[in-house]
Design a protein around this nucleic acid. Structure first.
Lengths: 215, 215
DNA sequence: TAGGATATCCGTATTTTTCCCGAATTAAGA
DNA sequence: TCTTAATTCGGGAAAAATACGGATATCCTA
């Protein structure tokens, strides 16, 4: 019996997923959480599940942070990430975090079934769509491979993006980050290139799409 | 038998809702659509439902636009709006569009049941949370009442917001809107006041939260 | 019809953002 | 060790965004 925990702050979707999964043979949803923090609490007092279905866009502790925690503290748990939007950035970042599969929220129930099945039998699941994007990135010499190697966001950049998605000015952001305003300029310019945008609004859009900032 | 159509681009959540609703007595989900356009097509060839469960944040034709269309073309259909985030702006705007109820996506199945039941028996459903916010707005003299009267966005402002959530400069936005750049400045300044932000990024955030721009 | 509030349009001034250059330091690789 | 990157920071200028205010038209009202 494969044991699964669901993590998503939308109760109804979560229940829906649970109902579907419990219909499958050999699968059982043993717990449901609303965010990463709840998951950690649950894991502290309960036996480890085999799979965690993790929503990327959550309020309290989002999917990215939670996956990072899981990789570090519970590396044997397989993570299947649920995404709302899709983008190359998320993709690469998630792979780095050891996520074993990615499933778009607009996926059909049969996609869900395939994902859950494959991830337990073969260790990982990636849809054709996901794989295609990866291949395209590798093939796209000018931007693609560079991104594969370099477009991962470090903690500083993530922190910057979170602060940039606000009414603050860059000076204020620099203060908050305890950095020289010039350095903040560099971080921003770096992100312009990495994320292929040319304005702060563009950065904000990418950040939101990728669950880096939670609304 | 109350006939219901679901409109949401997340298949699994949609199916979950459908399953729940079909469990209720006297309710039946007669159709499911992924966005407003599909709904319109469906309505053209099928008999009118009693209730439409409408997601606010959709790609093709979002909930706001769809509600507007329904108000004009199918005024007898009751609209229950599903929201991802919540904000005062959405609230007022939705009420103006004749929406008969608002349900947050993090609502529980029992909330869903209450909403569906109440909307059909009493004509409308608003949660305590929603009502409380409305009351607060009315009581808050300085900003509240003004917002109630004035914070509704007209088509021009909505269009501006959609364009503002991009890498475009205001000049380019002005060109696209066929307006003088100064006029675009005024629209922006107006929105700063209405939405209580002081930068373009702030505008973008509000616009996304309210489903005015779809990512 | 005069007065007052309000919306629209547009100009000026200031601040912020963005870009381009480059220098000093550190890290990494051959 | 020498070269090559990458990081942090600075000056300065051009462009964009924002703040402020003025002119005109409109509409409501006393």
């Amino acid at each position: 019996m494969i044991r699964i925990i669901l993590v998503d702050d939308h109760v109804m979707l979560r229940n829906a997923l649970a109902a579907r999964i419990n219909e499958f043979e050999n699968f059982k949803v043993v717990d449901q959480c609303s965010n990463g923090k709840e998951l950690i609490l649950t894991l502290e007092t309960n036996p480890e599940p085999d799979v965690v279905l993790l929503d990327l866009n959550m309020k309290e502790m989002n999917g990215m942070e939670t996956a990072q925690w899981l990789k570090k503290n519970r590396p044997s748990i397989k993570v299947l990430m649920l995404t709302m939007y899709d983008s190359e950035l998320t993709l690469i970042q998630l792979l780095q975090l050891g996520v074993k599969g990615i499933l778009h929220k607009s996926a059909s129930p049969s996609d869900l079934r395939a994902a859950i099945n494959t991830i337990t039998t073969e260790g990982q699941y990636f849809s054709n769509h996901t794989t295609t994007k990866l291949v395209n990135m590798v093939n796209n010499k000018e931007a693609g491979t560079k991104r594969l190697q370099k477009s991962l966001l470090n903690d500083e950049e993530v922190f910057f993006l979170q602060l940039a998605c606000s009414d603050m000015t860059y000076k204020e952001v620099a203060q908050r980050m305890k950095l020289n305003p010039r350095t903040v300029d560099s971080i921003r310019d770096q992100l312009f290139i990495k994320l292929d945008v040319k304005s702060r609004v563009g950065l904000a859009m990418v950040a939101i799409r990728n669950g880096i900032v939670s609304l």
